[in-house]
Computed example of a mutant assay.
Amino acid sequence: MTPAEEWSLRLGRQLVELGVEPAEAERLAQDSHDEAWNSGRAPMELYGPASVYAASLAQAVRTAQPELAAGPAGEVVLRLSQVSKRYGRQLVFDGVDLTLRAGEVAAVVGANGCGKSTLLKICCGMTAASGGLVERTPRIGYAPQHGGVSDLLTPDEHFRLFGAVHRMSRRTAVSTGTHLCKQLGWRPKRGQAAAQLSGGTQQKLNVVLSELNRPDLILLDEPYQGFDQATYLDFWEQVFKWRDAGAGVLVVTHLLQDLDRVDHLLELHRPEDS
């Protein structure tokens, strides 16, 4: 067995351990192996350690959550019913309710440490709620506040990787990603790895990846960190374009000047502030 094959085998095993279905884990491992082969580089060189890369892949794969049936505009795409989160004895938040429909934008606000990012991770299935019920549409996109991209991959490689998760062809994934980049005023340079991008540009890549598969629900955790003023305005215009196109959008934000245009405002409080 070659080192590349050993790396792919470890990747598949790690994905299964992280909760990915075995058949899906095998497909993702094979796709990663093929991508490295086509690039002429070893998987370890291209992606890094299999265990680290598996964590990034598993994050991109939708984890099991109660799902709402996909439907036309106006259908519920996310419902939170008395959702709570606790770490040991520490209560992060409690009794959170929200109903978000297709074609609506909801903003989550609150002081630092009140659990805004944790709530979004619960919405996308990365973290389990301690109580309550989370229901969501099967087709979601998620842009985290930090991380979310691989330093060693170029934007095109990210598009192909995420496209593979969504069963998109490589050509469609790259063309779609490139088009979405232009809407945020960014044209990726061929061959430039994510590590060479500024923090704001990496966040643009995160936003593009969240919309790559045209999801019914888009979850955004303050993704505009590092944006200049023009890009920040472009970002909010894009949010409302998603709404007009029929997607439900949930945005975590600490900036209040744009909230007069959103459909729902969810304010989280620390338990001691309630």
Rank of each mutant, 00 (worst) to 15 (best):
S274W: 04
V239S: 02
L256Y: 02
A245R: 15
I218R: 05
H264E: 04
L120T: 09
M1E: 10
L266K: 04
L180V: 04
Y47Q: 03
Q59T: 15
A129E: 11
D31H: 07
L255Q: 07
G113S: 02
M126Y: 14
W242G: 12
Y87A: 09
F162L: 13
T176R: 08
K182L: 15
A194W: 00
A29V: 11
H179S: 14
V262Q: 00
Q90G: 14
Q183I: 13
N206W: 01
R243H: 06
A230P: 15
A245Q: 12
G71D: 04
D221Y: 00
A73S: 14
S150P: 10
V174M: 10
A36V: 11
E135F: 04
A73M: 13
A60E: 03
E17Y: 05
R79W: 05
T201N: 10
A69W: 00
T201W: 02
Q59D: 15
T172W: 11
G248E: 09
Q65P: 07
E272Q: 08
C114L: 05
G19K: 08
S32G: 14
S117R: 05
L120D: 10
V96Y: 01
T172D: 15
E135Q: 10
W242H: 13
G110D: 02
R214Q: 14
P155C: 08
S81D: 05
G48I: 01
P3Y: 02
A70Y: 01
L217W: 03
S84A: 14
K182S: 13
G110A: 10
S175L: 14
V249D: 00
N38V: 14
A54L: 06
Q225G: 14
V109D: 01
R167A: 10
A173W: 04
L268P: 09
G248I: 03
A4S: 11
A55Y: 07
E17N: 13
Y232E: 13
W186P: 11
Q225P: 14
M1Y: 07
M126V: 15
Q202K: 10
T63E: 15
P223R: 00
E67I: 13
K121D: 10
D221C: 12
L28F: 06
S150D: 09
A58D: 03
R41Q: 06
L250G: 10
A195T: 07
L233Y: 05
D34E: 12
A70H: 05
A25I: 14
A70P: 13
E104L: 11
Y47M: 05
W37E: 13
V262H: 01
S130L: 06
E211Y: 00
